[in-house]
Amino acid sequence: MTRLKADARHSVRFSLNGKLVEGEAEPRMLLSDFLRHQLGATGTHVGCEHGVCGACTIIVDGMLTRSCLTLAAQVEGCELRTVEGLAPSADRLGVLQQAFRRNHALQCGFCTAGILMSLDHYLAGNPTPTEAEIRDLLSGHICRCTGYTPIIQAALEAAAELASSKKETSDA
């Protein structure tokens, strides 16, 4: 096992939304801080730093991960996905993002990145979720603005749209 010196900065390299990134971090630096302040990927937000609010949720090697409970050094060599990687292009939103906009599923937008990542990850493996399943999934996220219902609705709409576009593709 690699041992890192506590008071030194170490190089950390990983793939962020498909691109190789590199930076230096002390062993105690949180992944959330590393993403935001070292790499400038500020779309991932920090709400509680103790793993409850879910705002900092990202995907590490295919697993939903609280970046505030992860050290930067832990993701060396991993594949990370964050909210910055969701849109198909800079001027176009993805299906899930569009559903959020259509349903007013965000207000201040601070918690939204984490919720989007949880849903993106979940819908990939569960194309036809029920409302109860979405509510269960998102119970690990706190939103203080919306009262949640529009988020649930956006998720269900996005799931339906993704499923039907997939069907069309396979039919073609």
């Binding site: 990927a41 779309g43 989007l116």
Partner: peptide, 21 residues
């Protein structure tokens, strides 16, 4: 009318500009 919000595209793609960003 309930038009779509102009604020949302940036907020949904990690482009929000909050104070710590």
């Amino acid at each position: 009318r309930s038009i779509e919000r102009v604020e949302d595209a940036a907020l949904l793609s990690g482009g929000g500009r909050f104070i710590d960003d």
